[in-house]
Design a protein around this nucleic acid. Structure first.
Length: 308
DNA sequence: CACTTCGGCGCG
DNA sequence: AAAGCGCGCCGAAGTG
């Protein structure tokens, strides 16, 4: 193995070089034989990390080809990967912050949240929910957290405007706590000029009272989303600190190697991997205590695709 | 030649 | 006119 001078190392890992090479396999660090991302801790407005050179937070997964790509991410021989991700953490935070009774009930009873929403919005029982209704409810749930309007839902679901409006109206009838939360957070943002996460991270919204309606509405959407996305970031960071402390002391052979917003990836010797899985899952779920339970789903694999 | 901007696309 | 949050990287086209 060649030991590189600092100049050579910096050249090989420079952004410029990265673009020239254009392939993960060629940016392997010659000293460690591995690919190393850099996490930026003071970039995003909400408190998330960002990942650069290379960005490992946007590796494909949604298509079959994408999953094949993930199979290329493997641990050292004798080790396995563990992926543990929070289930619906932002919606759970919405339940916690809004104290909405219906949403809280769904999470306290560990219901399939999109099916539960579909049952409410379409007025059917849980076991009558169709695939299509669940799909619509999922779009509503995600859209709400981003401050989406009826127009946005129309485009997302390819349905008439009036129907999208009816879905949203019904949603807010069934989830009045969420409706109040949306209104309250906007009102508070306009008064304070900022919103904050459960741990007090603030996002200042300079345009929340702008005369320009487009800019003002964009700030309102950010006001709705930032406490949800940002609190999720707070929670996983707390979990990372707890887990790191524990691993350093008790299981230094286990490495926490990646974070993808609501997911942590570990590399660990195969023998103890089942025990490690249970430990990290528990520490993620207990990172903070909310009004509703936090659930982390974890799996073991020979590559990133299998583990996820 | 290095840098910037923009539209497109990958992820949560 | 735009109407869904948060990111980073790519290629094409333009700038100096």
């Amino acid at each position: 193995m060649k030991i590189l001078s600092p100049e050579e190392y910096i050249h090989l890992t420079s952004k410029q070089s990265l673009q020239q090479e254009g392939s993960l396999i060629r940016i392997e660090n010659p000293i460690t034989g591995r690919i190393h991302t850099s996490y930026q801790q003071a970039v995003t407005s909400t408190g998330r990390l960002s990942s650069t050179e290379p960005n490992l937070q946007n590796i494909p997964i949604k298509t079959a080809e994408g999953r094949r790509i993930r199979e290329a991410f493997v641990p050292e021989k004798g080790n396995v990967l563990i992926s543990a991700d929070y289930s619906q953490i932002e919606l759970r935070i919405m339940a916690h912050l809004s104290k909405d009774k219906n949403l809280t009930h769904a999470f306290n009873n560990n219901l399939d949240i999109h099916s539960a929403t579909a049952a409410e919005v379409f007025g059917v029982s849980l076991d009558e929910v169709t695939q299509d209704q669940r799909r619509s409810a999922k779009a509503i749930n995600f859209g709400l957290m981003y401050g989406m309007s009826a127009f946005g839902l129309t485009r997302q679901l390819d349905i008439p405007r009036a129907e999208a409006q009816k879905y949203l109206d019904t949603y807010f009838e069934r989830y009045t706590g969420v409706k109040e939360y949306m209104e309250n957070i906007k009102a508070k943002a306009k008064e304070d000029m900022y919103v904050e996460t459960i741990m007090g991270r603030r996002l200042y919204l300079n345009e929340i009272n702008a005369a320009n309606g487009l800019r003002r509405q964009a700030a309102e959407r950010a006001a709705i989303n930032a406490p949800l996305q940002g609190s999720a970031a707070d929670i996983i960071k707390k979990a990372m600190i707890d887990i790191n402390k524990f691993l350093n002391k008790e299981m230094p052979e286990v490495k926490m190697i990646m974070q993808v917003h609501d997911e942590l990836i570990f590399e660990t010797p195969k023998q103890s991997s089942e025990e490690v899985l249970q430990l990290v899952k528990k520490m993620m779920e207990e990172a903070v205590k909310l009004d509703i339970p936090l659930i982390a789903e974890a799996a073991i694999g020979e590559n990133w695709n299998e583990a996820h």
